[in-house]
């Protein structure tokens, strides 16, 4: 059984037909070709399949694709703006928060959902928000540091051939 669904993917309206027994992860990767989102454990433990649906981070492996009808989905491909990486992506690179990279798309999406809801999270809020994303390389500290620095308004980029903090954005304290 197939069903046609309409939803927004990375801010663009989309109409697509897919089997009703497909997960959102299958639709994103296998039909739409957006392979930034990874399939890891495929049962909600590892978080590498994390995408944002209507502002919330969810496991795309545990959701039927038909469930995003009428909703707004953001994948890691939706983070960049005009060919520029998102500040979170730049911070991950600058801080060494990426090693093998397999968990990174999910980490970025959980981090984005956190910062969108809570622009200046504490370390413990970051740890909790990322608790559904496993990383076997970094030991998490670099990932938490990267998110914390974006929360604190630091902007990273390549300067003189080296990734470094190039700007400090003043964020209002609440």
């Amino acid at each position: 059984m197939e069903k046609t669904i309409r939803f927004h993917l990375n801010e663009k309206p989309l109409e697509v037909s897919c089997p009703v027994h497909w997960t959102l992860l299958e639709l994103i990767r296998d039909r739409l070709g957006l392979t930034g989102t990874k399939g890891g454990c495929r049962e909600g433990e590892c978080g590498t399949c994390t995408v944002i649906v209507d502002g919330r981070n969810v496991n795309s492996c545990m959701m039927l694709a038909v469930d995003v009808a009428g909703r707004s989905v953001t994948t890691v491909e939706g983070l960049e703006r005009n060919g520029e990486l998102h500040p979170l992506q730049k911070a991950f690179i600058a801080k060494g928060a990426i090693q093998c990279g397999f968990c990174t798309p999910g980490m970025l999406m959980s981090a984005k959902a956190l910062l969108d809801a809570n622009p200046r999270p504490s370390r413990s809020e970051i740890r909790k928000a990322l608790s559904g994303n496993l990383c076997r390389c970094t030991g998490y500290e670099k990932i938490f540091e990267a998110i914390e620095s974006v929360g604190a308004g630091e902007i990273f980029d390549v300067d003189d051939g080296v990734w470094q903090a190039i700007e400090q954005v003043q964020k209002p304290r609440d």
Partner: peptide, 9 residues
């Protein structure tokens, strides 16, 4: 229950 992603579903 579960993880943040699970609690969102």
């Amino acid at each position: 229950v579960g993880t943040p992603q699970i609690r969102n579903l």
